[in-house]
Structures are given as structure tokens and as C-alpha cells.
């Protein structure tokens, strides 16, 4: 992906507030994700129904990479079953770590393909994926 295409996706999703809201519904599992070494801090709300991720919302404060990667990941995970979702997260994290990954399942998450060259931004790009993965694994 070239740098302007990458930037356009990251910015578009950074400004997309569709799923950026707090949820007061007990059907959602709430989890907080923070990066202690910087100041990223978001709450994530996940609704799972019969193995399907019905909805994910989030809210909080974080840098452009953290927010945009959260939005992009959420857009990719909604309506997927848990196995599919974990496979997406697994390949996304491999990409961020600079390992071989399956680009077919990542869609717009490919905009974060050069994060592996910026070690200090890896924790930003995985702010949401780390915690969503934990929730999904517990829900299996």
C-alpha cells in the first residue's frame, strides 16, 4: 500500500465516530485497554451472540494510530464468528510484528502494514486487538 492510500484510510477511520460511544447495556462485555508507557486509554464494549460478534463499541482517549486501528479492527470484526475474528486478529498482530501473514483477511487493516518498522507505535496499533483477543478467547 502506498503512503497516501495508507494515510487516507487511517485518517478516514480516525474521524469515523460510528462505533465511538460508551454503552450501558449488560449484553455487552466491557474491557479497558491502556498503554501504561504512554497515555492511550479506551473502554471497549463487545456483544457476542451465539458465537457471532454482534457489535463492538469503544470510547476513550488515544493517539491517532491507536484510535484509527481500533476503528478499523472493529469494522472488520463485527458480524464475524469468533474463529474468524481470532484469525483476523492473529494475522493483524503478525503483520504488526513484521512476521508472515495472510493479507486476504485484513482489508483496511493493511493500512497499518508499516507499523512493524516503528517499534514504538506497535503498542498503539494493538491497543484494541490485545484486549478483544482476550475476550474472544474467554468466550470460546
Amino acid at each position: 500500500m502506498d503512503s497516501s492510500e495508507r494515510r487516507n484510510i487511517i485518517l478516514k477511520n480516525y474521524q469515523d465516530n460510528t462505533n465511538r460511544k460508551d454503552v450501558e447495556d449488560s449484553d455487552y462485555i466491557k474491557v479497558n485497554s491502556r498503554n501504561a508507557s504512554c497515555i492511550d486509554n479506551i473502554n471497549i464494549y463487545i456483544k457476542i451472540n451465539d458465537d457471532i460478534i454482534e457489535d463492538i463499541k469503544f470510547n476513550g482517549e488515544a493517539c491517532v494510530i491507536a484510535i484509527s486501528s481500533t476503528v478499523t479492527l472493529i469494522n472488520n470484526l463485527i458480524k464475524k464468528n469468533i474463529d474468524e475474528a481470532l484469525n483476523i486478529i492473529d494475522n493483524y498482530e503478525k503483520m504488526v510484528d513484521g512476521l508472515d501473514y495472510d493479507s486476504q483477511v485484513l482489508n483496511e487493516l493493511l493500512a497499518f502494514d508499516d507499523i512493524s518498522k516503528q517499534p514504538s507505535r506497535k503498542i498503539c496499533a494493538t491497543l484494541a486487538s490485545r484486549k478483544i483477543k482476550e475476550i474472544l478467547e474467554k468466550s470460546m
Binding site: C38, I39, D40, E61, C63, V64
Partner: peptide, 21 residues
């Protein structure tokens, strides 16, 4: 603009400021 994004921007110009609480 989130404080850390500002700090990262300033760092592009080798200006060191702290972002956070």
C-alpha cells in the same frame, strides 16, 4: 489534537516536549 500526537509531530522537527499526565 491528542497530546501525544502533538508531541510526535513536534518530534519530527526535533523539538522534545512531554505528553501525558
Amino acid at each position: 489534537v491528542f497530546a501525544q500526537d502533538t508531541a510526535i509531530y513536534l518530534d519530527k522537527y526535533n523539538i522534545c516536549v512531554r505528553a501525558g499526565n
